[in-house]
């Protein structure tokens, strides 16, 4: 299988409903996994709510050295759900260096949707959403170390 074949395969997968695909021969193993379907950003609530999501640059676009803007605590509505790091490790926003982020502010997620990866001791641990709702804040930059209990995302339940 060469690059052209892979491209054809990916195109075929993109046109289908398949979200995960593995192909193994004696020489290689190919794993293709598609991120959660991005949902059109719901901006309906924006009028009623302060708009912290808009104030937050997507983590991978943040300039090096600058921390993502974090809205003041008073701006965070109390019903939003915080997703915290269950382990210490390195935060990865996407499944691979050049792949798009699992989620960005404004994305809709369902329980079980992968939000990020935390690498600990060379093991990739997928962190999943437990609530359905809209991701409002992504608070950690790609490849940043995270500690236990650190808030990674804020989700507005919906």
């Amino acid at each position: 299988m060469d690059v052209k074949d892979i491209k054809r395969l990916l195109d075929a997968l993109a046109a289908s409903e398949v979200r995960e695909f593995s192909y193994e021969t004696e020489e290689y193993k190919l794993n293709v996994k598609r991120g959660p379907e991005p949902v059109v950003t719901q901006t309906v609530t924006a009028a009623a709510q302060p708009a912290p999501a808009a104030a937050n640059p997507a983590p991978q676009e943040a300039p090096a050295g600058a921390a993502p803007a974090e809205p003041a605590a008073s701006e965070v509505p109390s019903h939003w759900v915080e997703v915290t790091a269950p382990i210490v490790g390195t935060f990865y926003a996407s499944p691979a260096p050049d792949a798009p982020s699992y989620v960005k502010a404004g994305d809709r997620v369902e329980p079980g949707a992968v939000l990020c990866i935390i690498e600990a001791m060379k093991l990739m641990n997928e962190i999943e959403a437990e609530t359905s709702g809209v991701v409002r804040d992504v608070l950690v930059r790609n490849e940043e170390p995270v500690e236990y209990g650190q808030v990674l995302f804020r989700i507005e339940p919906a």
Partner: peptide, 14 residues
């Protein structure tokens, strides 16, 4: 926490 080997080592590595 203090006996959590994985988190401890991970903290050292990161």
């Amino acid at each position: 926490s203090y006996l959590n080997v994985r988190n401890l080592l991970s903290a050292a590595l990161v």
